[in-house]
Write a protein that binds this DNA or RNA. Sequence first.
DNA 1: ACGCGCTTGTGAACGCGCGCACAAAGTCAG
DNA 2: CTGACTTTGTGCGCGCGTTCACAAGCGCGT
Lengths: 221, 221
Amino acid sequence: MTTSELAEPRTPRRREVIPEATVARLPLYLRALHTLADEGTQTVSSEALAEASGVNSAKLRKDLSQLGSYGTRGVGYDVTHLISQISRELGLSRRCSVVLVGVGNLGRALAGYGGFASRGLAIDALLDADRAMTGEQIAGMTVRHIDDLAQVVVPGSIGVIATPASAAQEVCDLLVGAGVTSILNFAPTVLNVPADVDLRKVDLSIELQILSFHEHRKSLA
Amino acid sequence: MTTSELAEPRTPRRREVIPEATVARLPLYLRALHTLADEGTQTVSSEALAEASGVNSAKLRKDLSQLGSYGTRGVGYDVTHLISQISRELGLSRRCSVVLVGVGNLGRALAGYGGFASRGLAIDALLDADRAMTGEQIAGMTVRHIDDLAQVVVPGSIGVIATPASAAQEVCDLLVGAGVTSILNFAPTVLNVPADVDLRKVDLSIELQILSFHEHRKSLA
DNA sequence: ACGCGCTTGTGAACGCGCGCACAAAGTCAG
DNA sequence: CTGACTTTGTGCGCGCGTTCACAAGCGCGT
Ligand SMILES: NC(=O)c1ccc[n+]([C@@H]2O[C@H](COP(=O)([O-])OP(=O)(O)OC[C@H]3O[C@@H](n4cnc5c(N)ncnc54)[C@H](O)[C@@H]3O)[C@@H](O)[C@H]2O)c1
Ligand SMILES: NC(=O)c1ccc[n+]([C@@H]2O[C@H](COP(=O)([O-])OP(=O)(O)OC[C@H]3O[C@@H](n4cnc5c(N)ncnc54)[C@H](O)[C@@H]3O)[C@@H](O)[C@H]2O)c1
């Protein structure tokens, strides 16, 4: 409750800081919105969009209010407008460079995956330490040697690690050294990064173990 | 504070219900413990194990106390004992059957992945709707047609969906129909399941978008 | 035998996120 | 123009999870 709270009641309250939980759901909404847009839907209520996204409708409204989005009471949200707002917030307007390190079984699957290409995110470069692989064409890209890392990284690049766990920290350090500040790690290891680097991990072994736990629990109920 | 609280002060307080957040970290501890065991370490302090797992040490201790695990004050935890305790809690003692549906780019990578085999979890069956693939040998397993689903599912099986999004709900329904109550979904769709079915999802498109968001934020700081 | 130092286990405070429930605000029909 | 209906935006209480900080406990050296 500072001094000037009645001064600007009409200003869209774009939150300076968006809660992490909200950020994690925006892509979900975005996907649902694209589906709706493809079906020709113009307008959607929070109830319907929440249903399509698999979340609570109050949560959805609160999330959208965070980004200053204005729906229309009695009507709902404009699908196209919402798409562009969320896209802008996620930084998907300007295409984002993604660099993949480790072109093995998993790396090849990722390289050929078109799922994010449609949303402004696409893998731009493939790197591997194996010289036998250098020059190979995969999904329209040429595999380059890891030594060329500095040449493919641009400011704002996202790094993806799909190497064996034993090489992950080393690759991570190389990425950080090249200026990458956002890393997605598929290797089952704890990685150490400077505080200014964002690190996320995907570990399906962990996912399976969590499911195993619940399955185990059910069996002894 | 019920009546008999002083009666059994020595009973290991095995929690009847373990918090979800704790369950999600147990596999992390398990991995770190296996590494320690391989190095011949006998005993580990909460501080050291927390460091190796990338978590706070107080959190680690609270997590372990949940499963009634007893460390020794002044010494730490017995590595071997802790491994068997966590493994038992996660249900990894008795090998757990995993059924993979959708043998495409991603499915093949998963099929050949040995990362969970070492921890009591391994894929037992590969299923696909494409008849041209039926009978093919992948990673020592024969691809079977999706119609054979009921024959490969056993009570306690975990289902993994790696089909295109358009087929995911249909496959999901088939799995549920066959008695599967734990599903891991890689397709970018919201799946509807009965309340008694555990559903987890892995969506790297979402992971990338979250990273994109933070990268975007940094750029306009 | 006994105290010293190390480490566990946990009480308590805090902050975040969730979801209910409702008032405010807008639409649309007549 | 008015009133009824629809849907948003959010205040509020609650429960979960995280972390600090410390007392209790255990081993070891003397
Ligand atoms: N395959 C899967 O389904 C799967 C699933 C989950 C996690 N993972 C994890 O993903 C990672 C990759 O798995 P994979 O099956 O593709 O392994 P892989 O062995 O098939 O491929 C690893 C690739 O990394 C390259 N590499 C090794 N060291 C490197 C370095 N220092 N710099 C650059 N490249 C290097 C290798 O040349 C190889 O091409 C592993 O950590 C694995 O645990 C894989
Ligand atoms: N490839 C990746 O790196 C990647 C990454 C993230 C997510 N995904 C998701 O994982 C899923 C699979 O991706 P992919 O690249 O392996 O696709 P893909 O097209 O290569 O493989 C899909 C497989 O599913 C099979 N299939 C289709 N309908 C089926 C049905 N009804 N029953 C059983 N099998 C059926 C197809 O025959 C095919 O073999 C997709 O939903 C994709 O969005 C893929």
